[in-house]
Simulated assay, not measured.
Amino acid sequence: MVMRAVYMHQNAFDDWEATARIVVEAAARAGEQHGEAEALETLGKAAFQTLRLDEAEEHHRASLALRRRIGDRRGMAVSVNALGLLGLRRRRLDEARAHFGDGVEIFRELGDRRWTALVRSNLAETLCELGQGAEARTLIEQVLADFRQLGDRACEGNALCLLSWAQRTSDEPEAAARSIRAALSIADDENNQVWQGHWGTEAARVERALGNPEEALRLCQKSAAVQQKLGDASREAAALDGAGEAYQSLGRFEEAAELHRRAAQTYRRLGSRWQLGRAQAHLADALTSLGDHEAARAARGEALHLLGSFDDPRAIALTEKVARCLSDDGT
């Protein structure tokens, strides 16, 4: 699978997937189970990147079964990590946490420092999603030291972005600002637009927390433009939704509503229920400020329906907030 990294870098998912299918069939005919498992993993990654999540799970579970059969412990850990990423993407956070914990243990037993740190980073992201910023921060500080010693700039930057998230949600916006600026410095040094676009959205959230909506808006607009160029619709929508929040902080509610609508349209097309629910909640806030209470109630009603299907602490808190606003609307 030499071409996998090339296809991933260029987002050439059709070629990437076609190549993997050929390898799966050839390896199965030859009885080469290691190669078949790796090709199935590649198919799982291709399906994940194009948001065909059920298909991705099928491929990763098939790869895991093969690796268990042949006693490939390292391969098993890679597959378990992939299943954790699926749980994270679907917001099945307890499931994701369990998979990442298993992966960490296997890689640690194998003495693979880089992979242990990588899966710990994924575990830390899950903890951030669960609202457990303090626990996440402790874990991130450990992996950050590992990535620096390993000289892995990409993972170092991603860990700094996660550290910013944990600090921001722990009411430490100044510390978060230092962390995300360090991450963006890495992105700038490497002239890497993917990193600049992704980490720029977190930088915008930090600026909003610091009370700087103008700078937050600039960063979101820059991130959205980068993501549009890269063809990453989900991350572009996240930047647009963030820009809408910045517009709301500036009292520019019509512009905010338009961006929240655009983000919601993308999330609806992608089937991203959690993100769509949040965008609709943000839209409802903007519409309320515009005095369009009927449309606000409709947006909140959809948000409540979407968010109610998640049971983690952050989701429950947001669902309760939306329900209170809906009640205040007189419904």
Rank of each mutant, 00 (worst) to 15 (best):
A65S: 07
A65R: 10
I70P: 05
L93G: 05
F48K: 07
E41D: 07
V23K: 07
D14H: 11
A37F: 07
T50W: 04
R67T: 03
E41G: 11
L85S: 14
H9A: 12
R67C: 00
A39S: 10
S79N: 13
I70R: 03
E38Y: 15
T50G: 00
A37N: 05
A37C: 04
E38A: 15
V78W: 13
E58H: 00
L88H: 08
H59E: 04
L43Q: 03
R89V: 01
L93N: 02
R67K: 07
R69K: 08
L64E: 02
F13Y: 12
A82F: 07
L64V: 06
A46Y: 01
V78E: 12
E55T: 12
I70S: 03
L86T: 01
I22Q: 05
E36K: 13
R89A: 01
I22F: 07
K45M: 09
E57L: 05
R92N: 15
L40T: 03
E32C: 13
R73V: 09
R68M: 07
D15R: 15
I22C: 05
E17Q: 12
L43G: 02
R29M: 11
R90G: 00
A20P: 11
V78C: 11
A82W: 05
R73M: 06
L53V: 02
A28H: 13
L43C: 10
V23Y: 09
A82G: 03
L66H: 04
T19C: 14
V80R: 08
L93T: 04
R67M: 00
R73H: 13
R29C: 11
G87E: 07
R67N: 03
H9F: 06
E57F: 07
L66Q: 08
L64I: 09
A26V: 11
A46M: 02
V78L: 14
A62L: 00
R73Y: 10
L86W: 02
Q49L: 08
D15Y: 09
R29H: 10
G71W: 00
A37Q: 10
R73T: 06
L51V: 09
N81R: 12
K45E: 12
A20C: 13
S63I: 00
A37R: 08
A12D: 15
T19W: 14
E36I: 04
R29G: 15
L85G: 15
L66F: 06
A28E: 11
A56H: 10
L86V: 07
A39P: 00
E38F: 15
R91F: 08
R52I: 00
T42K: 14
T42N: 14
D15G: 06
D54T: 14
A12N: 12
L83T: 03
H59T: 02
L93F: 08
H59M: 04
A18G: 08
A18Y: 10
H59V: 00
D15C: 13
A12R: 05
A18Q: 14
V23H: 05
A65V: 01
H9I: 08
R61S: 01
W16E: 15
L88N: 10
N11L: 11
R91K: 06
G35Y: 14
T19H: 13
A62H: 01
